[in-house]
Design a protein around this nucleic acid. Structure first.
Lengths: 224, 224
DNA sequence: AAAATGGTTAAGAAATTGTTAAGATTTTGT
DNA sequence: ACAAAATCTTAACAATTTCTTAACCATTTT
């Protein structure tokens, strides 16, 4: 089994502080990436997906506040010498997840990093998910339909898991497409339709209940 | 129209601090609940589901640290006079989502509350909109009329949501047309009239009350 | 009364979804 | 590294749902 390391992007222009943070994180077995200016950070953010960003505010090129506004879907912890309440509030309200003032305590920084990574993981529940005749076995990537074992492909599993985890809710087609392909735009909506169709067939083999409902123009959901 | 308020449980034994927090939150339109001991908090937590917990550490009955361990699936912000790094780290690692030291800045507290509620919403159900006999279910994209399920098309849903969200207000025909078609000008006003007509019919099937009122030459609004 | 706006209905156009099968790609086993 | 197997994507077409158009009538304004 491969445990992938968490990728953390450190955006900080002061080289000595940068190095301290980098070493601290490396010791904890995080996968660190470095940006020394706001513009460099943006370039890196376009190329790769990170689990967390540590962000200094006073940066050459592009201010940290601007980066917060541009980033989406990645947790940001601001690390700043600015202690004014307004600075904190601004950052937090515009998208940062936490704000730590320098000088910071390394243990506290590590703990707050854990908190963020933990909340990212909320979706990845390891427990099995049961619903009526269905039981999704997380360890084996299989599905029980009325206690009959049905093997799912990786994609089918991901789709069904997303639907079951958010059960009453409609999941948009785009959200489901994101699950299927990390690469952008290369995946057809039609492909998703085929996966859904296959899932429905596999379920239908063992029960007459319908589980996956289409919401026209929006996406799919699990039927009540 | 009722948009459900966020429920916040305040666990704090010092009555004056408790009152300050409660008033602060009430002003921001949060739904506050009060516990003055650890044991009282547990009782409340068994009865109801909260969106967020504000937790003091030094409590009679049961220490805050114990509550953190018992709580599951609710974000906790610790509010404590303990400033030692070890206390912070312990709380954060054992399940708290944030840790604020007293005395705290009210704006910062509110901002950090927003952060937590924001991250809750990533997964969770959006707010439903209720008005008299109508209830728009955002998770299913359907409408309940006197508790009868009526399925709406994407466009009908968008129109009704816009009207309900801005209830006393008249929404101009152009604004509603924008909702229907992103492309400009390719959509007839007549089309909007048909959608409104269909909406009215679907509502009329289950109630005699009229909901959508036409404002001559301007647009539409929800009747008071 | 004439002109403009709103309401309803039905039919055809347009868009979305469902299914199947074939070809492309990735993974697996040797 | 290669062949076989499994999986994913694409394409084609059918089925379904939704949207727009058009025709016609009602209501309001001038």
């Amino acid at each position: 089994m491969v445990i992938t390391l968490k990728k953390i992007l450190i955006i900080e222009d002061n080289e000595s502080i940068h190095n301290v943070i980098e070493e601290l994180l490396k010791k904890e077995n995080y996968d660190t990436y470095n940006a020394y200016s706001g513009t460099e950070a943006l370039l890196l953010l376009e190329k790769e997906k990170y689990d967390l960003i540590l962000l200094d505010l006073m940066l050459p090129g592009l201010k940290g506040e601007e980066i917060i506004k541009k980033v989406n879907n990645v947790s940001i912890i601001v690390l700043s010498a600015k202690i004014s309440s307004d600075d904190k509030v601004n950052c937090l309200l515009s998208g940062a997840s936490d704000y730590i003032t320098k000088p910071f305590d390394s243990k506290e920084l590590l703990a707050r990093i854990e908190v963020q990574l933990r909340s990212n993981n909320k979706n990845n529940v390891l427990d099995n998910i049961k619903y009526k005749d269905l039981e999704l076995l997380s360890d084996k990537h299989t599905l029980l339909v009325c206690n009959n074992k049905v093997s799912l492909t990786k994609t089918e599993y991901a789709i069904l898991k997303q639907l079951l985890l958010n059960k009453p809710q409609v999941i948009s087609k785009n959200k489901l497409l994101d699950l299927i392909s990390i690469d952008t735009e290369d995946c057809d909506e039609n492909s998703l339709r085929v996966h859904i169709s296959n899932l429905r067939r596999k379920i239908k083999d063992y029960t007459d209940n319908e589980y996956i409902e289409s919401i026209w123009g929006i996406g799919f959901k699990i039927k009540d």
